[in-house]
Amino acid sequence: MDADDLRIIVCEEILNIAPEAELDGLDPQEDLRDALDLDSMDMLNIITALHERLGVDIPEANAGEFVTLRGAVEFLKSELA
């Protein structure tokens, strides 16, 4: 799976939790919580959904990397490599 596939998957899971999120024009380096108005419960739900979908363990120690779209994609890519 390449970065584009993973980006699509992450965006889909964001939209499952926050269907109102406007992902067009999202800066991949911006904190998702600020850009999309997500709270910590949303972030946990997104991480759980990605874990279930991709089988990747995302320890809470790495939750910090998930605050940007780019960080999330890169983490998943390295785990799946």
Binding site: L15, N16, A18, P19, E20, D37, L38, D39
Partner: peptide, 15 residues
């Protein structure tokens, strides 16, 4: 279902 969740989140916020 998703539309309603998004509708409510937009008005009320995630909290």
């Amino acid at each position: 279902r998703k539309e309603l969740i998004g509708f409510a989140r937009k008005r009320l916020g995630p909290a």
